[in-house]
Structure formats: C-alpha cells, structure tokens
Write a protein that binds this DNA or RNA. Structure first.
Length: 510
RNA sequence: GCGCCCGUAGCUCAGCUGGAUAGAGCAACGGACUUCUAAUCCGUAGGCCAGAGGUUCGAAUCCUCUCGGGCGCACCA
C-alpha cells in the first residue's frame, strides 16, 4: 500500500543520511503500467535545493533504497522519475494483504436528502440519496463511524400550504395559488391518512427502492416542542443584537457576507433560527464531524450555517462542519428543459426514473460523475441511457466470474509464491489495478468523492474482461490454473466490495 | 453588480495534493462466437484541454482577466 511504502522508504532514506528538505515522497500510480507499480517525482522537487539534475538525484536515491527493497522490488530511474516495480510474488502478496487505512477514526453525522414532505422526491433528491448513502459506506469502509440522518421540515409555512392544498382538494375548492398543484395532492385528498405521514412513507419507499436507508429521520417539530430552540438561541445570544425590532445574528463576525435575522419583527422565527437549533442539537450529540449534503441551489446558505456552528461552540471542543455542495440534475425533453417545481403540474418524479431504468442503473448513473458536475437527463433517451449505462459492463464481469467459479467448484488452497510463477507481463495492468484498490478507496473517502470508486470499478472490469478473453481457466492445468483462479477470485472479491459501497447489486449471472 | 460551480474526442464524462506520449463509455468504421455467457474482446479514426496572459524544470490541473453555461445573493422555507 502506498502509505506504508512512503513511510518505509522515507525512513530508509533518512537513515542513509539523505535530507528530503520536508518534501514528501508522494507515490502515485504511473500512467503507463510498464513504468512500474509506484512512481515519485521527488527528484524534480529537490533539484533546485540540491543543485543537481533530477536524474542524478533519482539515481542517488535508488542506490540508497535498493538494498532495503531488493527482496520485493526493482527500482529504476526514467526521465528523473523513481519507479518501483514489485516482483510478481510481492504484487500478489500485496493484493492478498488486508488493507489498513491511515486515518484517525471520526464519529460523523451525515445529513442528506432532507426533502420537504410536501411532495414526492424528484431526481435531484435522488442524486443526494445516492451520493449520501455511497459516502456513508465509503467512510465506514476506511474506519469512520457514520450515522445517517434525514431532516424533515414538518413545521412551517410550506407544510401549512401543503395542508391547505389538500383541505381545498378534499372540499372540491380550487387550490390556493401559492399552494401545491401536483396530481398527488388529489390522491392524498382521497385517503384519510395524515398527509405528512403519507408523504414520508412515500419518501421512505422511494429511497428503499434504490437501497438507501437512514439511521435517523429527524422531525423538525421536535425542535419546537422541546427546549432545543430556546436553548440554542440562548447559546448564540452573545453574538446577537436587536435592530428594527428584529433580532440579528452577527454572522459577519464569522465570515458571512451580512448579518442574518433570527427573530422577525413580528416575533416569529426565521427558518435559519430553527436550523440553528437543529445544528445545536447535532452538536450536543457530540460528533467529531457534521457533514451536510446540499444542492447548489443552497450554496449561499453555507456561510451563515457555518458561522452559527462556530458561534454556538465558542471555540470549545469544536465539532467540524463540512458542507458538500452538489450540482443539480436537470431534465430535458425534446431538447427543451423540463422545469422541476413541486408546484407545477408537469413533474417527473424520482420514482419514475427508478421504475424506468431500474435501481442499479439509476444509482450508477447518479454516482459515476463528480458531484461538481451537473447532470442532464434526457427523458427521451431514458432507454438509450440504459444501454449506455456502464453498470452492466461491471456487473457482467462479476457474473462471468461467478459462473466460472461455479463450474470449478471449491478452489484449491494456494501458495502465493508458487502461483506467482504463472504470472505474465500481460497480466500486470489487472494486478496493478487490484493492488491499487485500497489507495483508491482511501483517496475517494478523504475527498468525499464516491465517483472515484465508480470509475475504479469500470477500470477493474475492463482489465478483467481483457484477462478473461486470453486466459482460459477451465482448460488450463496445474500452477497456471491455480493462478488464474486466484486472480479472478481477487477480482470477484474486489468487485463485490466496490459494488457494495456503491449500493449496486452484484448478480451471479446475467 | 457580487459569490460558488462548470467549459477536455461528434455525445456523456474521468483525469487523484502540478509530473512521463491527455483517457474511458456511447456513436462511426474494420475484424473475432462449433471453444469458461459476444451485455465481451482486438484494431482504426476522432483533441489549439473555451480564449489570452502569468507562476516554473514542467500546467488540463495553480493565479489573473475575457467569453460562454448552471446556481445563488429575503425579516421565504
């Protein structure tokens, strides 16, 4: 694993009396597999300080390191880069060794979706549902403790408008202009269930359809009935002032653009005031980190919440707040944008997309792009999107392995140093890909970017399919058969882990 | 006007804290199924990384500006 290698080799260099001047070795995977398994450009960064050519420095370092590495790898210098090429058996050993992740475990509260229960979930909520659940799996995979939470705004104006809309529909009256006009309003009006409960059940059902489940559903109204609100306001009071008969929070003292109103001049609370109470509640649950996933349409809200979290804690044992801003999903039909508003009639809901292309394709489609990048979904191309969706390519790799292993029965116990004799250079890209899995996982977790893992799974599947074409297993014999079986079993294991984190099924046949 | 995100192959997108010849998928063209599932593989073609400056050994990546697109700038939630 990269981290261990960096540590070991840094120590080896230092004990040879080499001064790195604070530069980290920073290994990366070379973009050409025949350059080796790990590479570092440290010689370039030290060239100026050491007043030597990079190639010279690299050669010098290699001389110092080679003795310590000889049993595992060959070191070489190309164009000033130091390349490490593991011996085949060392590479196989690396793959077989369980990863340990150099992180400080944190207790994390991850909040996402948090849709108003005034209408069904749309595709945008779906993106956060997928991103959030993948991120939770990812952070847990490297050793953090994660609690997932869905915040429900079941109090306030929007809920009142929602209820008023249903009451009007029930009575056969026209729905208020600023009310909700979707078809679902009439559906709810025809049943006796509590409208908010009905909506929340539907949310849970939609989320469950793509395998997203929350540890907590936090209801806003519980903030109003308990002491949390007054308690939170009391804790932030030192940073507040009164002006124009409204109470303002001096958020500019914590980096916000302007101060924000908490208590309006009519005595009622702003949404922000309630949100402060919610975050106060989170802080009191003693997490190390709060992560919120918000759509780009809320990014302007970040500085004030961040300011509030700082003010509430007054610098004492701070809980860190991290807000992940994701770009929006837009729907297009016949080249024309489809407006996504809960108040307009014409709506495509998240459930429609799931039913159309299936949960696995939906999840993959929403996770394999960076959340910084907007997603445009053409409804007319929905079926085509299914064919284009690379998820089947990945699942097919897994299914191929499963069917093959089924025919073999119980694979034999193997001695890695023995089967390494069957290694050929053509297998190197696949083995490197397998070996780099823990590094990829760690990078993805540290960056809060599950899409890195989705892209990794594609890459692994590609290498596997190539291997499969040219390495018949059933007709091979002896060491070669054992080796090939071992390799595909490693691919199977890794694919299962990755697909598990992505929340996508790993079918045994297709 | 101010702030955040984005601009990479025909289309959809990767490109990790600057590193070696910028990569996939889909679409196009040409090959490979009596052989572990062809939902696959191999090959060909496709690029002024929006544009212009700057930083340096080295820039798609960092800084500044311009153009173009998305989103946001409430005593709404």
């Amino acid at each position: 694993m990269r981290h261990t290698l960096e540590q070991t080799l840094t120590e080896a260099l230092q004990s040879s009396g080499i001064d790195l001047h604070g530069e980290p070795l920073s290994f990366h995977a070379p973009n050409q597999s025949d350059h080796g398994d790990y590479a570092t450009a440290i010689a370039f960064r030290l060239a100026k300080v050491l007043k030597q050519a990079p190639a010279q420095i690299a050669e010098h370092f290699i001389q110092a390191l080679q003795p310590a590495m000889a049993s595992q790898a060959t070191l070489s210098q190309i164009n000033g880069f130091i390349n490490i090429t593991l011996h085949p058996s060392a590479r196989l050993m690396q793959i077989a060794t369980p990863a340990n992740y150099p992180i400080k475990p944190r207790r994390i509260l991850l909040e996402f979706v948090s849709a108003n229960p005034t209408g069904p979930l749309h595709i945008g909520h779906g993106r956060w549902a997928v991103l959030g659940s993948c991120l939770a799996h990812l952070l847990r995979a490297v050793g953090h403790t994660v609690t997932t939470e869905n915040y429900i705004n079941d109090a306030g104006n929007q809920i009142e408008l929602f209820i008023a809309s249903i009451v009007a529909a029930k009575a056969g009256n026209p729905i208020p202009d600023n009310g909700y006009h979707g078809d679902y309003i009439y559906t709810i009006a025809h049943c006796d269930e509590d409208p908010v409960t009905h909506m929340l059940d539907q949310h849970a059902s939609d989320l469950s359809a793509i395998g997203t489940h929350f540890d907590h559903w936090f209801r806003e109204h519980t903030l109003h009935t308990g002491d949390t609100l007054s308690d939170a306001l009391a804790h932030i009071k030192a940073h507040c002032y009164t002006q124009d008969s409204a109470v303002w929070f001096k958020s500019t003292a914590f980096g916000d653009d302007k101060d924000r109103v908490l208590v309006k001049s009519d005595g009622s609370l702003t949404y922000f005031a309630v949100d402060i109470a919610y975050h106060w509640n989170k802080i009191q649950r003693h997490y190390d980190q709060l992560i919120n996933i918000w759509g780009a349409d809320h990014h302007g809200y970040v500085p004030r919440v961040s300011a509030a979290v700082q003010a509430l804690q007054n610098g004492h044992s701070p809980t860190e707040l991290t807000v992940i801003i994701g770009q929006l999903v837009s729907l297009v039909r016949n080249g024309e944008p489809v407006r996504m508003s809960k108040r307009s009639g014409d709506m495509i809901y998240f459930r429609d997309v799931i039913d159309d292309i299936g949960p696995d394709a939906t999840r993959f489609f929403l996770i394999y792009k960076s959340s910084d990048s907007p997603i445009e979904l053409d409804l007319n191309l929905a079926n085509q999107k299914t064919a284009e969706n690379p998820i089947f390519y990945i699942q097919y790799a897994h299914a191929r392995i499963c069917q093959l292993l089924l025919k073999v029965g119980v694979p034999p116990d193997v001695d890695i140093t023995q089967i390494a004799d069957a290694y050929t250079d053509a297998d190197r890209p696949l083995l490197q890909c397998l070996m780099h899995y823990p590094d990829t996982l760690l990078d993805a977790a540290n960056a809060y970017e599950p899409h890195q893992l989705a892209n990794y799974s594609l890459e692994l599947a590609r290498h596997f399919h190539r291997f499969y074409e040219t390495n018949p297993v059933l007709t091979s014999t002896g060491i070669q058969k054992a080796y090939r079986l071992w390799v595909i079993a490693q691919v199977q294991r890794t694919l299962q882990t990755v697909l598990g984190i992505l929340g996508i099924s790993a079918p045994t046949r297709m």
